[in-house]
Write a protein that binds this DNA or RNA. Sequence first.
DNA 1: ACGCTTACATTAAGCGCTTACAATAAGCCC
DNA 2: GGGCTTATTGTAAGCGCTTAATGTAAGCGT
Lengths: 337, 337
Amino acid sequence: MKATTIYDVAKEAGVSIATVSNAINGKGNVSKKRRDEIFKVMERLQYQPSVIASALMGKKTYTLGLLIPDVSNPFFSEIARSVEDLAHSAGYSVIVCSTDNKDERVDKYLRLLEQKSVDGILIGTGTENGETLTQLAEKSIPIVMIAREAAGVSAHSVLTDDFKGGGLAAEHLLALGHSRMAILAEKLEVSSSVERVRGFRFALFEAGIALGNDGVVSCDSSIKAGKKAAAALLAREERPSAIFCCNDLLAIGALQAAKEAGVKVPEQLSIIGFDDTILSTVTNPALTTIAQPMDQMVKLAFGLLIGAPESGQPIRQRIVMPPGLIVRESTGEPPGS
Amino acid sequence: MKATTIYDVAKEAGVSIATVSNAINGKGNVSKKRRDEIFKVMERLQYQPSVIASALMGKKTYTLGLLIPDVSNPFFSEIARSVEDLAHSAGYSVIVCSTDNKDERVDKYLRLLEQKSVDGILIGTGTENGETLTQLAEKSIPIVMIAREAAGVSAHSVLTDDFKGGGLAAEHLLALGHSRMAILAEKLEVSSSVERVRGFRFALFEAGIALGNDGVVSCDSSIKAGKKAAAALLAREERPSAIFCCNDLLAIGALQAAKEAGVKVPEQLSIIGFDDTILSTVTNPALTTIAQPMDQMVKLAFGLLIGAPESGQPIRQRIVMPPGLIVRESTGEPPGS
DNA sequence: ACGCTTACATTAAGCGCTTACAATAAGCCC
DNA sequence: GGGCTTATTGTAAGCGCTTAATGTAAGCGT
């Protein structure tokens, strides 16, 4: 069956299409009586206005793009859910794009989103090519970065204070009495990762504790990679008494490496993660971790995206949110204290 | 800056818009020379054809809808990722819709997707209102159900053999020597859940083992709810030696309840889950579970969705895939054997 | 009864694209 | 070289909608 159009409704209701359109959009000039009739007809005919057609007339598409590295990664799937809920209640739908952090995919997705005239794009994926982004921005597609920053792109961004997050982790471990620590970081091109490491290091430095050059190991961001890297760390002569992992996936890898090596957590080894994903509540021992206020961040980002469109160049915002320490079971005093 | 249109390209290249359109779509009639010129101009002008406009002319929107209960649930986020990858390589993008299994949300999303003229909808969420679905089907929007079935909707579906999955779980437990078992199921309106319970029961029945009426407890599908329900189960006089949980979330809840109750898994209690999500690899002990061949299922579903559009009423397919048992650490012989 | 405003409806143009059809130029045969 | 076909490009209609401009009738004061 062919879809019902505004013409069908108009004919059926005995008015012109303009009147139907006005009735739908609540533009001033339709009498209550007519309006009611029209709505009744719409219902009877199961009429759904075509977003496509109205978008073509320069109205919104009510569709947003969300770029993240991977929806199946709990950290990002939780973001996706928040975005979706917000979007949904504002009448938008969201196209989810998993980029695997590959510039090539980022690019392709961005182009796709442009072709589909989305009303805005939320970017939570690392990307080096600010170029494509800038092009989009110039075509006045609103863009806001979330939990990531891209060099040289003039878009709003909503971030966690990763430096402080690293510091929080360090302070927690320091307070517990640790002094031999190591860092497990995802590959150091991701801006947030770098900041976390810096923050952690700085806190240690302030406490007068050095972190050897080989104190930070980097690997891919996956449980498997984390496990392998952690295993190497644990096999060292001077085994650290605590490991700061730049995200929960890595921390879980470390947890597994410890289990295999017969190292008890937290008795013999403290492990602290980052992100506070659902995963960290599920491990045994449950993971101590640094939480980002994602719900709030998403809300802010969404506001920036939808709230102030077309405001020309409204002043580029850069909102930084404070992380928090969530103590669970994977951290404790160092052995022999 | 206003977006470049086909007119700009045509003018710049000194041809008509029809020629540009033909060049882009490879419709027979453009000489190589012209085509090359046109492509050069498109590149220079950064021209992106508007999917919106071409969709209005009856072409595809290259957008798909995916309805699932919750993207932030690992089982579904993994599905979402598979769908997205397939879609992406076929040039589509996907709008993800988390329904929380609420009919009202299902309905609203379905309407939204219709308004946006998506080329197809994948449904992995329970829904009772086949009505809206049937309406959509009549408007010739292809629909395929995945891992769920809805009553009375004439759409293709790709399912796991849940009955067999339940059986697999039972057989595993039986082989281990268990005889006092219980089932933790998500609320019994979900078709897959019912089948799993039935399959489990049937295998028990065939082995000559009875499952008391109070042997199956149902609750919401979350770790928290599972934990609470499992705790009640463990507090019973005749504590079961094994619990079959209808999904991993519930199983993790059970794991947590056991931990709190000081019941050792698997020594004193075996727990088996369903779905083989990432969560099941992360717990300690790692979860024995029933795996659904999701990647394959998604591939099949996608094929049915995109492959045969407009084929009128091609014969309604109902593909059932075999589940598999994944033995990890959470199951073992019953105590005292 | 007249002109005026106000309230409601309709007409028609056009968003960026596709496509059937018309038009033109070129190539070919006898 | 006239009339034909063939290859290529242009013209224009229309997809379903919004909206400015226009029209019409009713309501009002004098």
